[in-house]
C-alpha cells in the first residue's frame, strides 16, 4: 500500500529555537533530501515523522501518510520504515530471524513466513544466508539485510538517516543504488537525511534544509 507523505506545516521548536519547519508533499517513489550541518535538526525531523521525538521538543502541524493522520500515533502503528547509519541488525537473531521479525502478524504459518524471508534474501543476492549470524556478514551484506528487513514490514514510507555514511567509497555507490531502486520499485515516499551532496544528487529529488529552504547542489 503506497501513498503520499504530507508534512503539513510541521514545525518543531526546542526552547525558543525553531529547528524544523517543513511544509511539503512527497510523492510515491520520490526521495526528499534534507541537508544541513550536524545539529541542525535533520534527525529531529526524522524523529518527528517516526514518532520518537523526546518530550523536550514542541511540535505543531501534522504528518499525513497515505491519507492517515499519523501525527499522534505511537511509532509501531505508523508504518514508517527507518534505515540507520549502522544496520542495527539484532545481534542475538540469525539473519533469517531478523527478517522474520519484520513480517506482519497477518502473515500466518511458518512455511509462508519462511518463504517470504527466503524470497527477500534472494532479491538481495543473499540466498541461503537465513541461518547465518549477522556478525559474520560483510558491511555490504548487512546493509542489504537491513533494507530488506525494513521492506518486509510493508512500510508506507521510508526514512533514511545517513544510511550510507559508514560504508566505504566503493560499496557506497552500490548500496545507494540498491536502496534507491528498491524505493522507486516499491513506490514509497522517502526522506533522506545526509550531508553528502553525492547522496542528494543520486536521490534525484528536492533538497531542502531542516527549515525548508531549498539547497542548490
Amino acid at each position: 500500500m503506497t501513498g503520499v507523505l504530507e508534512l503539513q506545516d510541521l514545525q518543531i521548536t526546542q526552547g525558543q529555537t525553531r529547528v524544523v519547519a517543513l511544509d511539503l508533499t512527497i510523492a510515491p517513489g520520490e526521495v526528499l533530501t534534507i541537508m544541513g550541518p550536524s545539529g541542525s535538526g535533520k534527525s529531529t525531523a526524522l524523529a518527528a515523522i517516526m514518532g520518537t521525538l523526546a518530550p523536550a521538543f514542541r511540535t505543531t502541524g501534522r504528518v499525513i501518510l497515505a491519507g492517515r493522520d499519523i501525527t499522534t500515533l505511537p511509532p509501531h502503528l505508523r508504518r514508517v520504515g527507518l534505515l540507520f547509519q549502522d544496520d542495527v541488525l539484532f545481534p542475538h537473531l540469525s539473519v533469517g530471524a531478523n527478517l522474520a521479525f519484520a513480517l506482519p502478524p497477518s502473515v500466518k504459518g511458518r512455511i509462508a513466513r519462511r518463504a517470504l524471508v527466503d524470497a527477500a534474501l534472494d532479491q538481495a543476492d543473499l540466498s541461503g544466508f537465513a541461518a547465518r549470524d549477522p556478525a559474520t556478514l560483510s558491511g555490504g551484506q548487512r546493509a542489504r539485510v537491513a533494507l530488506m528487513r525494513t521492506l518486509l514490514a510493508q512500510p508506507c514510507a521510508l526514512l533514511l538517516d545517513e544510511p550510507f555514511s559508514r560504508l566505504d567509497a566503493g560499496l557506497r555507490a552500490q548500496i545507494r543504488s540498491f536502496v534507491l531502486s528498491r524505493i522507486r520499485k516499491e513506490g514509497l515516499p522517502a526522506v533522506l537525511v545526509t550531508h553528502d551532496p553525492e547522496d542528494a544528487q543520486a536521490a534525484g529529488g528536492r533538497v531542502v534544509t531542516p527549515l525548508g529552504i531549498p539547497v542548490k547542489l
Binding site: M50, P75, H76, L82, F84, F90, H92, F101, A102, P155
Partner: peptide, 27 residues
C-alpha cells in the same frame, strides 16, 4: 542498551511489549 534497537523494532511494526520480550530482554 542501544536505544536505536528499540526504534528499529518499533519502525518494523513491533509493539513496545514485543520489543521488550523479543529484543531487549534476550539481548
Amino acid at each position: 542498551w542501544d536505544p536505536r534497537v528499540s526504534v528499529a523494532g518499533l519502525s518494523l511494526g513491533a509493539t513496545p511489549a514485543r520489543v521488550f520480550w523479543r529484543l531487549r530482554l534476550p539481548m
